[in-house]
């Protein structure tokens, strides 16, 4: 039998590097407005990575005005993602950073990790 995970994966976008929870990233998303296409940036921290073949996705959290958190989930294999830029890696001790949802300001700061 054909193995689903091994034999059926669309090729990964070369403009997406390896991502880790806690990374500060800027996701460039292609947006279609009628005929025109433009690129929108979404900057924030990766709070979760979910693996699973073509469904691999990650959630980015950013704080908008008035300290309101905005979370957006992106599919890694989606053609709508132009590229992902990792600005910095941070030192985190868990895979899902849901604790950031309760934190604002300096408490929501993650220490940078230098390799």
């Amino acid at each position: 039998m054909i193995d689903l995970d091994k034999n059926f994966n669309t090729t990964k976008n070369p403009n997406i590097p390896d991502l880790f929870p806690g990374d500060s990233v800027s996701v460039h998303v292609r947006i279609k407005e009628g005929e025109r296409e433009r690129i929108q940036e979404f900057k924030g921290t990766i709070i979760r990575l979910r693996k699973g073949g073509n469904n691999t996705n990650f959630t980015v959290r950013r704080t908008a005005s008035n300290g309101i958190g905005v979370e957006r989930t992106f599919l890694i294999h989606s053609p709508r993602i132009d590229k992902v830029v990792v600005e910095r890696h941070t030192h985190v001790r868990r895979a899902q950073l849901y604790f950031l949802r309760e934190r604002t300001g300096k408490k929501a700061h993650l220490k940078q990790k230098f390799d």
């Binding site: 054909i2 689903l4 059926f8 669309t10 279609k32 073949g53 073509n54 294999h77 053609p79």
Partner: peptide, 22 residues
């Protein structure tokens, strides 16, 4: 033979749920 489900992307970039069959 049913292989399983996954998703692929159409021309507009929308994810489509797909069952793969050998």
């Amino acid at each position: 033979k049913k292989i399983g489900m996954t998703q692929i992307f159409d021309e507009s970039g929308a994810a489509v749920p797909v069952t793969l069959i050998e």
